[in-house]
Design a protein around this nucleic acid. Structure first.
Lengths: 332, 332
DNA sequence: CTGTTAGCGCCTTCAG
DNA sequence: CTGAAGGCGCTAACAG
């Protein structure tokens, strides 16, 4: 800045004014300064600004896995929203490791980010509330608030389960299966609860009308594929298979094809999430759509709002929607 | 720091030493300082450190679209590598808009990032070389170096095309189709060149043995699906369809199913990229695998190396590989 | 082994 | 409308 000031024949304060309060500088001076800036290729020093107390323009996001299509869409929503506010995103993956989460959070705090959007991996929210208490706002991603003094955005998993079940129930199915997973266990549990609710609403007993299968965590699709055999070999096999996510549904589709069972002719299949490619499958997958992009946007909204004086911590509950495509039909 | 120093009864310099040169501080003093830090919940101020000249621990990455599975995997590779070096990632999407790219680059420079990994969207590399000249190293992602004084990592597209074509040629196919796209035009062109090379190597004339179809840019899968009709209605239709990416292949699979044509029984299909779900499809997709994660890692490697004294700009060419699965077989 | 000091680049009074 | 001065938190060099 000093160099620019020298070339333009003004003081550094004037250069600063050109940058931050152009209106207060006379047009000629401004032009001279701007020319000087262009000449030396001047770039503001963010560190110095931040040190001086200017609010940071970077927000942190901590997700489970950046390469997971669910989180990459969420991240994109975050990015777009913070970008509108002139902010940048510092993004990191925890791989569900608490140590990694802790490290990332510390670094974000050191960098003085404006706030952090976190998909928490551990059960304890201590570090997060501590962070918030020390002045770095935190918004929970796809995780309930649990009375912590934080904002949160979640998607209604019970509703999602209900939506899926009601759909196949309305088509006439009476024996359902639900493929759950130990990763994301509580989400699976909630979705399953939704399914049971729908069953009861129809006068059906979940204990009889619903088979639950827990899929081993690695290579979900393969495990789902393999699970199909046992599922359909049962004496009174289900005619509709509900899955805790779309990848599992993909596996089921594969298994069914392997067994020569038409979808939706013989068996109906419902996914969950609505990740990118589901609409392009053959058959296109009926699934419960999570508003992933909106989830990111809403969370970023909440975070940006934290700096507003009257802000209060709130929990936003987003509603999933049923997307009916080609993998469901009336039972055989 | 002053507060910590006061509580521990030392000077700020000693606190600094505990943080950065623990060996130089006596164990008792160190413990006292550490206790004081824990007591006040001390967190270093990254901005102040950076201002003081400590090399930045954040690297920037500018991709086309964070939510695109190709780039999210590349990003994950970058993240893992920089994370090993104790760095964080500032990630942003350009949506192939030069203005956005320019803005992001400026902000990254202002923040004084250690370097930037960029998938350039415009034809001109001026801004990037400028950035590098001013002291922020730049590595090109999936883009040739073009004599710019920058590092670059690319994947051999000609080889990829050759691999795909040679595979179906070896299976006995003699009439091929290639579905290309205007987005990523030069990649498509190179892959197509690879296909032609393979054809010629087999003594075939590309003009006769190869049909090229250009897909409109939005909703690739749907357009690919629709393109199948015309393709197979031709007098001497192709028996193998090569696609410029997996999404297009998905569309082809759909179109073929719509027409009641078995894959690979009647028509073989080859994708490109090997995005996440391709192995789980029914039929599992034969495709040309791009080393996406490795691409990110290699680029990050190059970037981190820029600070080494003897560093010279280099271009790394990664090799794609053919993944044979279930969507290809000998012609009918 | 520990303390003192100066200054990184910028922005914001305050005085002219 | 412009200039001079001080300090944000930290670290490196040096003095004790």
């Amino acid at each position: 800045m000093r160099q620019v000031a020298e070339i333009a024949g003004v003081s550094t304060a004037t250069v600063s004014n050109v940058l931050n309060t152009p209106a207060v500088v006379s047009p000629e001076t401004r032009q001279r300064v701007e020319a000087a800036m262009a000449q030396v290729g001047f770039v503001r020093n963010g560190a110095a600004r931040q040190l001086r107390g200017i609010p940071s323009a970077v927000v942190g996001a901590v997700v489970l896995d950046l390469a997971n299509p669910f989180y990459s869409e969420v991240s994109r929503g975050i990015e777009d929203r913070v970008s509108e506010a002139g902010c940048m995103l510092m993004l990191c993956s925890t791989d569900a490791l608490v140590a990694k989460e802790a490290r990332h959070l510390r670094v974000l705090e050191e960098h003085g980010v404006r706030g952090a959007l976190v998909a928490p991996t551990g059960a304890r929210l201590d570090q997060l509330t501590g962070l918030a208490k020390r002045g770095t706002p935190v918004v929970l991603l796809d995780h309930p608030q649990e009375h912590a003094a934080l904002c949160a955005v979640t998607v209604d998993n019970v509703l999602g389960g209900r939506l899926a079940a009601r759909h196949v129930l309305e088509l006439g199915h009476r024996r359902l299966a639900f493929l759950r997973s130990s990763v994301g266990a509580w989400q699976s549990a909630q979705r399953c609860e939704g399914i049971r609710q729908a069953l009861r609403a129809e006068g059906l007993d979940p204990a009889e009308a619903l088979v639950e299968v827990e899929l081993a965590p690695n290579d979900i699709a393969r495990n789902a594929d393999a699970a199909v055999d046992a599922l359909l070999a049962a004496p009174n096999p289900p005619t509709a298979v509900l899955c805790f996510n779309d990848i599992a549904a993909l596996g089921v589709l594969r298994g069914l094809r392997r067994l020569g069972l038409a979808v939706p002719g013989r068996v109906s299949v419902v996914g969950y999430d609505d990740v990118q490619f589901t609409a392009d499958l053959a058959p296109a997958l009926t699934t419960v759509r999570q508003p992933k992009y909106q989830l990111g946007r809403a969370a970023a909204d909440l975070l940006l709002d934290e700096s507003r004086p009257g802000h209060t911590h709130e929990e936003i509950l987003l509603r999933p929607t049923l997307v009916i495509r080609e993998s469901t039909a009336a039972p055989y």
